Measured scan of single mutants.
Amino acid sequence: CHSECLGNCSQPDDPTKCVACRNFYLDGRCVETCPPPYYHFQDWRCVNFSFCQDLHHKCKNSRRQGCHQYVIHNNKCIPECPSGYTMNSSNLLCTPCLGPCPKVCHLLEGEKTIDSVTSAQELRGCTVINGSLIINIRGGNNLAAELEANLGLIEEISGYLKIRRSYALVSLSFFRKLRLIRGETLEIGNYSFYALDNQNLRQLWDWSKHNLTITQGKLFFHYNPKLCLSEIHKMEEVSGTKGRQERNDIALKTNGDQASCENELLKFSYIRTSFDKILLRWEPYWPPDFRDLLGFMLFYKEAPYQNVTEFDGQDACGSNSWTVVDIDPPLRSNDPKSQNHPGWLMRGLKPWTQYAIFVKTLVTFSDERRTYGAKSDIIYVQTDATNPSVPLDPISVSNSSSQIILKWKPPSDPNGNITHYLVFWERQAEDSELFELDYCLKGLKLPSRTWSPPFESEDSQKHNQSEYEDSAGECCSCPKTDSQILKELEESSFRKTFEDYLHNVVFVPRKT
């Protein structure tokens, strides 16, 4: 048989008469490798580009789960590009990614509803959504962080984005990388972005840091009482949809009607710091009717980097990364020049730590249904340095008659930039024990000054392991946590139920 035959053949030295091919099969003959313009397919066939392209389009058009959109890589027609490569849609070739590779997620039936953290986790790592997304989240724990972890990498949506009755959302900033909504599939009414009845939605994105392009379709905003109209108009300008909307697409009466839409800028007039305090004062603000001013709200939190936005980490279910302080308005003076500047002394802060701070007014709604208010920009203030805590785990070892090696770990709280350490030492008198000992005694162990690591005695271990207080009263049991108490109650309830079950099964009433 021919060298490319495997198993047997019907005619000697003829690659077209093989029972099976050793390498690849091409047009009725066995070959060692697939010549151009053919590609290896499933490690035994040679196919042309049209064959591989037909497989790709067949799966793409069917949208069946589990099928493969075949691509070409290293002269092979394979189910998908290997790690580190992405497909070129024009020629199906796998090309190296520039940075992290995109991950295209194809949605069944063309859309997916995100109504819980669990459903959001199914899209973790996706960068391109081939379909439409509907966000409908009523509640949950730590929602802002969970949504950002699972949806934060999405850069492109081919269909539309719909935010509907998501009472738990305060902001859409968890879509931190969303840059493009194509609108290839539109919501009824030709809408590519749809926001309806979101009672706590206050911000779409921080438009000073976020760009969003909507290729096709219109915007729809109705019944978002805490979303200011200025935020919607800003989205029109940034996304390129200005002029597409009709009169009733953006409701003037049901958007922002319960919001404090600040239209003035508060400026800080005085800032002073110490290692654990920050004193702030800002310019006074009074609405047209000074009785509408209820006070100020001061927001602050630790910020290692200057990239904080107002609604980071917030949701309507209680999660809030900001510390909020309510401040009463100052006494009002008739003389504008003698107006008191409101302020606040922030206490209990960490030394040498940068804080993000902003302040906003708290006002009631005027009778004319106009909203007044003022808010400052987010500023960054760093507390002063102070003395560091003591170095940890000092170790001293003498390696000769004239040297001592000293080692330690950095302090747990540096409280500033540590530039150097101060080492103090003092000579001590020799131990009298060394002169009084009889060095001729056998088995004498000389006193040693070398360091030995501390260890816990058996008594201390027994005390720590004991669940009861000892007789001397030195140790006591740790208080039980809520989960331990709940577990004990469940076990007790189970024992009672099981005992009742045994009584009912074992003891049967005697027939009379």
Rank of each mutant, 00 (worst) to 15 (best):
S166T: 11
A144L: 11
S321D: 15
E246K: 07
N150P: 05
C105A: 00
I378T: 11
L196Q: 15
V170T: 10
Y160T: 09
Y300A: 04
T383Q: 00
E310W: 06
R370L: 06
N399G: 08
S274D: 14
I134R: 07
K267F: 10
P304F: 08
K209L: 09
H210W: 08
G110L: 09
K226V: 15
E184Q: 12
N190S: 09
C228S: 02
K162R: 09
K162S: 13
S171A: 08
I327C: 04
N141M: 14
Y167P: 15
T241D: 12
T323H: 15
P410K: 05
D328R: 09
W282T: 02
P342I: 11
I327Q: 02
E156M: 09
G313R: 12
Q306S: 14
I357V: 12
F193M: 12
R347D: 13
V397T: 09
T254C: 05
G139L: 10
N255S: 08
Q245V: 07
T113S: 13
R291Y: 15
G313N: 14
N340K: 05
K409H: 03
T254V: 04
T323F: 06
L153Y: 05
N200K: 14
L123V: 12
S116P: 01
V363I: 14
S192T: 01
S230K: 14
A144I: 03
S338G: 09
Q339W: 06
S389M: 05
D115E: 00
I114Q: 00
L201A: 02
G240Q: 15
S402N: 15
E146R: 09
K277C: 15
P391N: 02
V117L: 12
F311S: 08
L147T: 02
P288R: 13
L266T: 03
P394G: 05
S171H: 15
D206Y: 03
L212V: 13
K360I: 08
N141E: 14
L196I: 13
Y305H: 12
E155F: 08
P288F: 13
L229P: 02
A149C: 14
D367H: 11
V117C: 03
C126N: 00
F358C: 01
S402R: 13
G140P: 13
E155K: 07
D276G: 09
